[in-house]
């Protein structure tokens, strides 16, 4: 080996970047997949927590309490290694998507519930008074307003999830951080590689943040009740 670490880094940069970009692709897949699963579970959870029947409401609360209280890493281990022992062998990527989805769903349940509750009771009553059913009032009147309320925390969640997917490296999901660890083990260029990784995470997060802000502006029509 010749030259300092920065010279070596410069010389190997194209190959290093190729490997890291493979990781970027996986990071995007896990983030997107986890986000979709979390959205679906979050909406279902919020509906459960909004139900009229107490046992159904308790089911929603139980889901939130359990999955929000256990570290996502532990949940990933259980899904990846625990299920394997029961004969359900999942690849690291689907395991990560399911894990982040379930964990994020618990978080989003609370976000969506808070969004629904932020809409003044009078909105629901006005909708019922003109003859809407409870479901219609929720769908036509409350939810469209709640969406605007939950958009900022939803953006936060998405960016948080993007970064948290680095945890999936622990179950050998070949995403960005996992690739980075491998490359560092091979080259010892830890500073250079992690700076590159940081730049890549930034390159993914910033457009996301920008997109959310744009969406917020577009939906800022009318006042919230």
């Amino acid at each position: 080996m010749s030259g300092g670490p920065w010279e070596r880094f410069a010389a190997q940069f194209p190959e290093l970047l190729d490997t890291l970009l493979l990781g970027v692709e996986m990071t995007v897949i896990v983030t997107f997949g986890g986000f979709v699963v979390a959205m679906v579970l979050g909406m279902a959870g919020a509906l459960l927590r909004n139900a009229r029947m107490v046992p159904i409401r308790m089911l929603g609360t139980l889901y939130v309490d359990v999955f929000r209280s256990v570290p996502v890493l532990t949940q990933l281990f259980i899904i990846y290694f625990g299920l394997a022992e029961l004969g359900v062998k999942l690849d690291p990527i689907p395991a990560a998507i399911i894990g982040f989805g379930i964990n994020g769903g618990a978080y989003l349940t609370e976000v969506f519930r808070a969004g629904i509750e932020a809409i003044h009771r009078g909105q629901n009553e006005a909708a019922l008074a003109i003859g809407m059913t409870r479901a219609q009032a929720l769908r036509v009147i409350v939810l469209p307003q709640a969406v605007r309320v939950v958009l900022p925390p939803l953006g936060n969640f998405a960016i948080g999830l993007l970064k948290d997917t680095s945890v999936a490296s622990s179950v050998a999901a070949p995403e960005l951080s996992f690739r980075a660890h491998m490359l560092v083990d091979q080259t010892y260029l830890s500073t250079q590689i992690y700076l590159t990784v940081a730049a890549l995470y930034l390159a993914m997060s910033l457009p996301l943040a920008y997109g959310v802000r744009k969406l917020e502006r577009r939906m800022a029509r009318g006042r919230l009740a």
Binding site: G122, E125, A129, I130, P144
Partner: peptide, 25 residues
């Protein structure tokens, strides 16, 4: 049933102290 109740409410107009207009419409 919710649907029947809604049908009956539809025939009763209500005007609230705080208007409760739908702000997104």
């Amino acid at each position: 049933r919710d649907v029947e109740l809604a049908r009956m409410r539809a025939r009763i107009g209500m005007v609230f102290q705080r208007f409760n207009l739908f702000p997104h419409l």
